[in-house]
Write a protein that binds this DNA or RNA. Structure first.
Lengths: 103, 103
DNA sequence: AATCATTTTTCACTTAAAGTGAGAAAGTAA
DNA sequence: TTACTTTCTCACTTTAAGTGAAAAATGATT
């Protein structure tokens, strides 16, 4: 699943994969935690987006952080939350930061 | 205020200084965010304790983190939250970690 | 030891964040 | 225009953070 790195996925599929409600993904977007590309009105999530979200969920549900704190850490650019995570998540995070800077 | 580093202060004074309810300090203690020394039943907070609590409050109210996330970061020993704070807070943090290891 | 004063603890309440359900609105395609 | 799908909005639920009030516990005083 999600092998082709150029491919992108619609919200329902991503929500199912992450085990969250699609409303939750809209909610995260409101806080700029993720910025899916849009073709027409539809949202499409890249593999990096999904990696990143997966890591955010882990921080929240396995480690116990909350949304706001993760956003704070991102804004501080501490890279704190990334010191103990696999390389592909670091890639996802950098990708996320790049997207943030775009607007 | 709180100049003598050997001195320690009762909970009401500390609460007033930090602008919190003393119940809040008991609450933090429940999560081992601070471990005041006790003489008899009374709690006494050192200057380092107070520094540390002041920084925790700043993380919460100026930066927007929540209690649980701060506790997570402490447990991870990331020193993340300390990369952008004054030396005396680092001292307070190290002091706090030492205290934690005592029990 | 009995009383008093103070600190601590417990219970229950308030407020706000995180998340979600239902349905309205809006866009797309036939 | 109609049917379908995605997005958006409103309102609700649940849980963390914090606090008030009062009970319980403890140390001090007589």
């Amino acid at each position: 699943m999600f092998n082709n790195s150029d491919k992108s996925y619609p919200i329902e599929l991503v929500a199912e994969f992450l085990g969250v409600n699609s409303r939750t993904l809209y909610y995260y977007e409101k806080f700029k935690l993720v910025c899916p590309t849009r073709r027409g009105r539809k949202r499409y999530y890249s593999r990096l987006d999904i990696n990143w979200l997966e890591y955010v969920r882990e921080l929240m549900y396995e480690q116990g952080m909350n949304l706001r704190s993760i956003i704070v850490l991102i804004k501080r650019r501490d890279n704190v939350i990334l010191t103990k995570c696999p390389d592909d998540v670091v890639d996802s995070y950098k990708n996320y930061l790049m997207r943030l800077r775009e607007d």
